[in-house]
């Protein structure tokens, strides 16, 4: 008979209505600022720059190669290369970014900068409460705001961080072994020269493949 479907529907909604008061667990929503959902491990929101050690500016892994700047689809990264150099994690002198800005309002969270970085220097953060009341000043994030310690990375993406740390450690071990071998060869050649005084003499280590990240 006409209308039986409507009655069925009304019964269903009435059941939902009453049921939601009897058993709160049926409610599908999470009351956000009070309750928080645990984020999935692969959550990504906005990139940050990884640094080692305690001093953010000293330990920044970025060598200002500008690959990410070129690859960024919406062109939201702006890098100015430094004039001088500082040693990186293996002790090799490298450029560092004098300016490293990312425009929050332009970034589309695609993670391409992370994929292309050969130095494990830029990673995705899970922080999503990024809104500000200052549209012109606060949306362009500078180097100081972007730099976060490696321990933060290990905390938010443990699996990725382990892979990244392993790659860096292997890199470092290789570099050390090579340095030792070079020193030994040089010692055998009878021309002892300290490594730091002549950086030009150091042979470039074999190019690292792109970090093998789990996708």
């Amino acid at each position: 008979m006409l209308g039986s479907g409507i009655l069925k529907g009304l019964a269903e909604t009435a059941k939902n209505f009453v049921g939601s008061y009897i058993d709160e667990s049926g409610l599908t929503t999470i009351e956000y600022p009070d309750e928080r959902q645990t984020l999935a491990e692969n959550t990504r929101q906005f990139p940050f720059l990884v640094f080692d050690g305690d001093d953010a500016m000293k330990g920044l892994r970025c060598v200002s190669c500008q690959i990410c700047e070129k690859e960024c689809p919406p062109q939201c990264i702006f890098i100015v290369k430094s004039k001088d150099k500082k040693p990186d994690h293996v002790g090799k002198p490298q450029f560092y970014p004098a300016t490293f800005d990312i425009d929050l309002s332009v970034c589309m969270s695609c993670q391409i900068c992370v994929e292309v970085c050969p130095f494990e220097a830029i990673k995705m953060d899970t922080e999503f409460e990024l809104s500000t009341s200052d549209r012109f000043g606060q949306l362009l994030l500078h180097k100081g705001q972007l730099a976060k310690p490696n321990s933060h990375f290990q905390e938010i993406h443990p699996t990725d961080a382990a892979v990244s740390d392993a790659a860096l450690a292997a890199d470092k071990a290789k570099a050390e072994a090579k340095a030792a071998a070079d020193a030994k060869a040089k010692a055998e050649a009878g021309i002892p020269r300290p490594l730091a005084s002549s950086p030009e003499a150091v042979t470039i280590p074999p190019a690292l493949g792109p970090p093998n990240l789990p996708m």
Binding site: T13, N16, F17, S20, Y21, T28, T29
Partner: peptide
């Protein structure tokens, strides 16, 4: 609030 409860969510609170 009523529509929210019908759709299994708390509604404005």
């Amino acid at each position: 609030k009523g529509l929210g409860r019908i759709q299994n969510r708390p509604g404005p609170n």
